[in-house]
Design a protein around this nucleic acid. Structure first.
Lengths: 233, 233
DNA sequence: GCGTTCACAATATGATCAAATTTTTCCGTG
DNA sequence: CACGGAAAAATTTGATCATATTGTGAACGC
């Protein structure tokens, strides 16, 4: 009897060399960060073993990692789900993101060469395309790529890791906001960032990054308090 | 009537009932944070299954969580070990710790009552005892307890989580520093923190916290560059 | 309503397979 | 004959799975 592989497992076949638990982790991470899972949605081990076509051990390990990342939450009674953010959570993330990511963009400015900036600009142009098309998924991927690429120039793995962890936390909720308001209402400061980068103006890059973050996160905070006026604590 | 359960036994049962993977995680976390494992030391799954007396699945899950925490590193070829910090790593952690933990102590100041401050002072007094006795292990535990308790007053779980993650990263290396120089050479600003807390001077608390962090981390940075003058990249 | 029972999902173990490191052996060279 | 290095065997460790056990929530009867 040959097992018919579904499309979810087909995505895994790309890098066949890596261990299964690593592949499951990367797959789930992308699904969470780019909002393919809805906040509050329960995540079951057995459901994933079936949809991903692997045993439960790799799935368990991936879920543990994502819980430590804050990308999933353990609901006490053996239940795991995608986190629902409170307005307090978002407020803390705004502070942390501005602190960490401003510094990352400042450090990136010290190290970039013009080729790097060109790469960044190309990503931003494609990003504009997704906004024009209303392509939410593409927008989320390219917006992340823009920031990740910028921060990679800082050569600061520990700070980058902290930033990545924060992105994982708000990914599902950001998707909800985009789904509600569309991509049109998501202004960004990427042009300012690129301009300041070309001028090698580190403080300007940091300031533009902080504004970019604040704009996006404030929008998310509003949408969340709007959607969940009451929370049961 | 045996239907009535008393609180103490219920709490005890709850502690006993924690799943094995959770217990393994907590055990390893403490061992790493308080320096019972040496930086660079390899960590094997089978070694832990024997020393902890549990199966490999709980051990694997705990290790995955700790890798996501940055408390353990995956060495490419399936090997896991306690991280060795470079001076660049320490420098990034200084920035991140000061950013996050200053904010936490600032927020804590807004929420504390005098009982909280008394608790903190009691911890600090016991901490002084361990310094006098040269009790490195006790020092590490109580120093952590002091900061964790202070930050818990901020009611900012996401920021606290980021801080905890950083503590896990430098725990093993801090232990090395203490082992080398003893506890005498570790000055802290805890008295300043408590004083500013009593005055409800949030900026003062934040400043004292930043100084406390900077002093400790700088000492660690010196000791590390001293111990590992050359690194092979 | 309350208590018991039932079904399902999660936890944990041991077995099995694969990969990597270490040790051993063998051959060639000085 | 001794030494060094490469190849191969052996051992150790990691990865995955199948299965048994346990706990949880829900349905049912009282």
């Amino acid at each position: 009897m040959d097992l018919i592989k579904n499309k979810a497992s087909a995505a895994l076949e790309e890098a066949e060399k890596r261990p299964a638990h690593e592949q499951v982790y990367q797959t789930l991470k992308a699904q969470i960060m780019f909002g393919e899972l809805v906040p509050g949605q329960p995540v079951t081990i057995q459901g994933l073993t079936e949809s991903l076509g692997v045993g439960m051990t790799p799935v368990r390990e991936a879920i543990r990692r994502l819980i430590s990342d804050g990308a999933l939450v353990f609901q006490g009674n053996r239940r795991v789900s995608v986190p629902l953010l409170s307005s307090g959570d978002v407020e803390q993330m705004i502070f942390a993101r501005i602190s960490i990511e401003s510094e990352l963009s400042k450090r990136a400015t010290e190290n970039v060469n013009s080729t790097d900036i060109d790469d960044l600009e190309r990503i931003d142009q494609r990003l504009d395309g997704t906004i024009a098309d209303g392509d939410v998924s593409g927008y989320l991927h390219l917006n992340h790529a823009f920031h990740e690429t910028l921060y990679s120039y800082a050569h600061a793995p520990i700070l980058s890791d902290l930033a990545e962890r924060l992105w994982l936390r708000f990914g599902p909720s950001l998707r909800v906001v985009c789904g509600r308001f569309g991509t049109q209402s998501l202004p960004d400061r990427h042009k300012d960032i690129i301009e300041a980068l070309r001028a090698r103006n580190a403080d300007g890059v940091a300031r533009a990054t902080a504004q970019d973050i604040e704009q996006g996160m404030e929008l998310m905070a509003e949408a969340l308090t709007d959607a969940q006026p009451t929370r049961f604590d």
